[in-house]
Amino acid sequence: MKLKQRNRDTINGLLFALPWIIGFLCFSVYPLGASLYYSFTEFNPITKPVWVGLENFRMSFSDPLVWKSLSNTLFMAFVSTPINLFAALMLAMVAVRKFKGRGIARAIFFLPSVIPMIAATMVWIWMFDPTYGFLNNFLSIFGIRGPSWLMDPRYTKGALLLIGTWCVGASMLVCMAALAEVPVSYYESAQIDGASGIQKFFYITLPSIAHVLAYQAILSFINAFQYFQQVYVIISANQGSATGTASGGPSNSILMYPLYIFHNAFVYLKMGKASAMAWILFIIVSLLAVLMSKLARKASENAGVE
């Protein structure tokens, strides 16, 4: 009787999860496998894949733009993650306090991360205009002469970071929730011990929410490897239609890896090479994800011990 129940549970469980299982096979497993096969072939959308062995990988590794785009993407991942986390945490510390109008303030901080990225990017492109843009005109009030944000390769990534920080709302909410879960008694006993605000932050707040921050860091990292829309739009705005197919912004400084995969697949029509590049990306992301979750686990374990 008991065994029967277990079997029935298994069947039911399977049935209920069936849509997702089918989806998983069709939209994750199959494409992953197929793209691995494609990475050893050469084809465009109307030709059949022809086996070329390791040629695509050889071509990718010898392509300077692959390296350029990879380094751009890694830069964004490593620089934007700490900046965004820091900004999110700081905003959360402000928004979590009790004050009049905090509901409005929270909504305002969160709003940018809700609106469609394409619209946000377009507004920022306009804000970044060196002469007519809001940003440089605002800076000039303080006597600062702003750069040509999207034309000068030294500032393009800074511009992207700025947009990213503006959209940090979701992380902020998570941090707020985490902060709210830190037991008040910790702070109270620290107060009695005469700890300063900064000490409280480093010895209580940070360790208590470390595991949440670590998880946010992983997500932020993975997002950095998905970077596409913003740069796609910025580049097409820079060029206008007259100059034809898009490249990678000033000095290819915002040619992100996913964008270059897209170029190879849907502009240069080298789908085999694009598949190879996609798999390289997949391997990098998987390795980083495993590594970071190990680190995160360690961090939260350490925090638990203390």
Binding site: L65, D152, P153, G244, S247, P250, S251, N252, V267
Partner: peptide, 21 residues
């Protein structure tokens, strides 16, 4: 075949030259 990519590389290096890198 690689014309588009060549132009992309040309533009990248022109930018380096233009901004003094």
């Amino acid at each position: 075949t690689d014309f588009a990519k060549y132009i992309s590389l040309v533009e990248e290096h022109l930018d380096y030259i233009y901004n003094g890198t």
